[in-house]
Amino acid sequence: MGDTGPRHVTVAAADGALSPRHDWTPAVWLGAPAPGGLALPSARPSLTGLYAPRGVWLGDDLLVVADTGNHRVLIWAHRPRFDGAPADVVLGQPDPHSEGPAAGGRGPRRGLRLPTGVLVTDDGRLVVADAWHHRLLVWDTVPTTHDVAPDLVLGQPDATSVAANRGGPDGTGGQCGPTSLYWPFGIALVGGRFYVADTGNRRVLGWSDGLPTSPDTPPDLVLGQPDPSAHADNRGGPPGPASFRWPHDITGTDDRLLVADAGDHRLLGWTPHPGVDTDADLVLGQPDAVTCTETPYAPGRPDRLRFPYAADCDDTVLAVADTANNRVLLWEDPWAGGRPASSASVVLGQPSFADTGENRWSSVCPDTFCWPYGLSLHGGRLAVADSGNNRVVLWERGP
């Protein structure tokens, strides 16, 4: 796919009518090469295979993918230029052909269990949300060889503890606190602040000085709960402008914060970045801050979301993975009026906003999706972790 030139893709205009556009085209396909149907992963992993990838980070030249189903992270040291390009580095497994949680039983010191969020900081550190080990792993530099142990563990007292909320050895979980984690799926550096979507505790944690350097450094912000020990869905009541059911990803700009609250089928936004737990001033995907309606059998709409698991933005585009609707929604020039419009301006992966089928109820094509789960937007390129198709697709924006 990567060597056949641009794909001219038809997407929908904001009114739902078909409108040919050539702004965004799928350029390179990594992972499963199954154009005729849903791809099953290989029983033996490799440097070219992916199994339900759920996180992706895209830099100028570097690409990092959470190969979630294989319990590993893959790193491409240089921008992939052709379909099926092999990764250069495997983390979380002893070699490119091993799989299984905790490095196939070797233990959590180097092993991962369903990693999801990935990012590389401005100073070159790699951070991985090792979600089902309830921790974050930090490498001081991006590894260039396989099976490198992390330099720092956050959310757990040491490199071998893996229970939820720093719980006991039975794995039943401990008490939610300011430095504990329970299914941390999303991580982000936004405006110099470091954020974690502590999904199982239904909250977002924030450190105003950036990535913490110790597992005992408490956050400056607990967003979505009344105190650091609380962890109930939507604060134990109905959804509201200061609650989460399933916060899963974080993005924003220097002066705004956006959280993909997947369980409430919406994005919540704060301008400027909140310093304390407070109400959001922006809601996308729902008509208001107290509604969380899911419409699985109704036609799609440009102003509704269904399990949005990921979001990313820059100064010109806001991209949202509308996961259960098998599409990516784009808001172009979202900050022109100070805040995004209620409706997206472009849909990727479907012929119109009304369509929501997996791979358009047809076959896997370069521009179709089956549960897109992770996004990374960078310099006119968009990386999509197309989880149900066991692949990552790199899209490019034309001039």
Rank of each mutant, 00 (worst) to 15 (best):
residue 201 N to G: 12
residue 183 W to S: 12
residue 238 P to T: 12
residue 173 G to Q: 04
residue 55 G to D: 03
residue 375 L to E: 00
residue 242 A to K: 13
residue 83 D to V: 04
residue 63 L to H: 06
residue 161 S to R: 14
residue 328 V to K: 00
residue 243 S to M: 01
residue 73 V to K: 02
residue 381 R to A: 15
residue 370 C to L: 13
residue 398 G to K: 07
residue 36 G to S: 15
residue 376 S to F: 05
residue 121 T to Y: 07
residue 96 P to M: 02
residue 181 L to M: 13
residue 3 D to A: 14
residue 206 G to Q: 02
residue 101 P to H: 11
residue 192 G to C: 12
residue 395 W to Q: 01
residue 23 D to F: 05
residue 329 L to Y: 03
residue 50 L to N: 05
residue 178 P to F: 04
residue 70 N to Q: 13
residue 362 S to R: 14
residue 221 L to C: 09
residue 62 L to K: 07
residue 212 P to K: 11
residue 377 L to H: 02
residue 242 A to D: 15
residue 282 L to Y: 02
residue 188 A to P: 07
residue 369 F to P: 07
residue 43 A to E: 10
residue 128 V to T: 06
residue 86 P to K: 04
residue 375 L to G: 05
residue 354 A to C: 04
residue 19 S to D: 05
residue 309 Y to T: 00
residue 315 D to V: 12
residue 309 Y to S: 01
residue 117 G to H: 08
residue 8 H to D: 13
residue 120 V to E: 03
residue 239 P to N: 06
residue 103 A to P: 11
residue 379 G to T: 09
residue 69 G to P: 04
residue 264 D to A: 12
residue 381 R to M: 15
residue 317 V to M: 05
residue 262 A to P: 03
residue 71 H to V: 04
residue 141 T to H: 15
residue 255 D to H: 14
residue 398 G to T: 15
residue 257 L to K: 05
residue 155 G to D: 03
residue 80 P to S: 12
residue 51 Y to L: 14
residue 178 P to Y: 03
residue 325 N to Q: 09
residue 42 S to M: 10
residue 387 S to E: 11
residue 383 A to S: 13
residue 24 W to L: 08
residue 101 P to R: 14
residue 203 R to E: 12
residue 90 V to D: 06
residue 102 A to T: 02
residue 76 W to C: 11
residue 86 P to T: 11
residue 110 R to T: 14
residue 367 D to F: 07
residue 89 V to W: 06
residue 39 A to I: 04
residue 48 T to M: 02
residue 391 R to Q: 15
residue 274 P to R: 04
residue 389 N to C: 09
residue 330 L to T: 01
residue 292 C to P: 04
residue 71 H to K: 05
residue 324 A to S: 14
residue 221 L to A: 05
residue 216 D to T: 15
residue 261 D to Y: 04
residue 371 W to S: 12
residue 290 V to I: 08
residue 305 L to W: 00
residue 173 G to L: 04
residue 181 L to P: 07
residue 37 G to A: 15
residue 179 T to P: 06
residue 313 C to D: 03
residue 53 P to I: 02
residue 231 H to V: 03
residue 285 G to Q: 06
residue 204 V to M: 10
residue 351 P to Y: 06
residue 153 V to Y: 10
residue 391 R to F: 01
residue 326 N to D: 14
residue 335 W to G: 09
residue 321 A to Y: 00
residue 384 V to A: 07
